[in-house]
Amino acid sequence: MTTQRGQTRLQKFPIGIDPKQFAEYLAAELSPAEQEKVSSLLQNFEGAKFAIGVDRLDYTKGIDKRVEAFNHLLAAEPGSISLLQIAPRSRADVDQYRKYKEHVENAINHVNAEHGTDDWRPIHYTNDSFSQAALARLYRAAPVGVVTPLRDGMNLVAKEYVAAQDPENPGVLVLSKFAGAAEDFNDDEALLVDPNHPEEIVEAIKKAANMPLEERVKRWRSMMDKIESYTIHDWGADYLRELDKSRVTPADHILLPGFGWSNEAQMPLYQSYAAVLTAYNEIDPADAALKRAAYADVESAFDALAAPLKHTQDRLWDLPAATASRDGRGRTGIGARED
């Protein structure tokens, strides 16, 4: 895109993860305290199916819609599946986020009161944070991964859940079609849903929880191939490669003091400025009067050149206080400061 301010290039760079590192997380030892925390959580689901959701406690993540979906699911199929919802607090000092936290917790309490028993709780909810190694164990243990943000740039939890699965017995990913990861995983791989419609989440979770092993393996293998074929290292290399293409070099640009590198085509007055500057530099320093007069022309030409650039580049520039030039007069150029 080219405007009066110059050329802007827009390109998307879908970020990946490091699947090899995630495999190492699964093998890594946890601290005794974290091992106890993970074991305590998993004890709640022994012999039962459960789904896992891992999200910041943020209204864009659709946690309330997810809880609503579980309410509908358990009303239709009591005791069929549980949810482990991990939701570290986000922007706790903002009133709207505090209200959202209360809204989510009230919804969870309602589901647990409505559908729970003395021996079974439908939704296990925690605001604790976990290491990547601990999350990897929790992802692998969950037959269903639920990633249903209302809108998300990527959501790497989706890729982490897939990377953590047992190749012989993988879980199923339920994924919002409005997460960036949905562009990587099609409907033959993840189960794509509209998170604004809890009934779609319900049907996807039911399908995921009862999916035959052969289909689960096929879906997982296809997603894992994509994750392994484009890792975070590929993403970084692509980004830097494209960034390098935008590098401004002296070969086709001019270094203008105070304005950085600028293209000559965008500075129609540059030739006039260059001419008077050349004339100034060719004057014998011994001819002080002529040198002073020529320098005044340089200043005037520079001001004329810089004025439209200050407008088109839309930056804040400070004119420096007068400084001594080599011939003892005036300023030598324009300095810059970005606020």
Score class of each variant (00 low, 15 high):
Pro198His: 07
Lys177Glu: 15
Asn196Trp: 13
Val174Trp: 10
Pro198Trp: 11
Glu168Trp: 01
Pro170Tyr: 08
Gln165His: 04
Lys177Met: 15
Pro170Lys: 10
Glu200Gln: 14
Asn186Val: 02
Ala179Ser: 13
Pro170Gln: 10
Asp166Met: 10
Pro167His: 13
Asp194Phe: 15
Asp188Pro: 00
Asp166Gln: 08
Pro170Trp: 08
Ala182Asn: 06
Leu175Arg: 11
Glu168Tyr: 06
Ala190Pro: 08
Leu175Ser: 09
Asn186Glu: 01
His197Val: 13
Leu192Ala: 11
Asp184Ser: 09
Ala190Thr: 03
Asp184Ala: 12
Asn169Asp: 15
Leu175Asp: 05
Glu199Asn: 08
Leu173Thr: 08
Gly180Gln: 04
Glu189Trp: 01
Glu200Trp: 01
Val202Ile: 05
His197Met: 07
Ile201Gln: 12
Ala181Met: 00
Asn186His: 08
Asp166Tyr: 09
Val174Glu: 05
Val202Trp: 00
Pro198Arg: 08
Asp194Thr: 13
Glu200Val: 03
Glu200Asp: 13
Ala182Val: 06
Asn196Arg: 15
Asp166Trp: 11
Phe178Ser: 12
Pro170Ala: 12
Glu200Ile: 02
Leu173Lys: 07
Glu203Met: 01
Pro198Tyr: 11
Gln165Ile: 07
Leu173Phe: 09
Asn186Ala: 01
Leu191Lys: 00
Asn186Trp: 02
Phe185Cys: 05
Ile201Ser: 12
Ala182Glu: 07
Asp194Pro: 12
Val174Gln: 07
Glu203Ser: 11
Glu199Val: 13
Glu183Pro: 02
Ala190Val: 08
Asp187Pro: 00
Ile201Lys: 07
Glu203Val: 05
Gly171Thr: 03
Asp166Cys: 05
Gln165Pro: 00
Pro167Cys: 09
Phe178Pro: 02
Pro170Arg: 12
Glu183Met: 07
Ile201Cys: 09
Glu199Gln: 14
Asp166Leu: 09
Leu173Asp: 11
Gly171His: 02
Asp194Trp: 14
Gln165Arg: 12
Leu192Trp: 06
Pro167Met: 07
Gly180Trp: 02
Asn186Thr: 05
Asp188Gln: 13
Phe178Gly: 08
Glu199Lys: 11
Ser176Tyr: 14
Asn169Met: 13
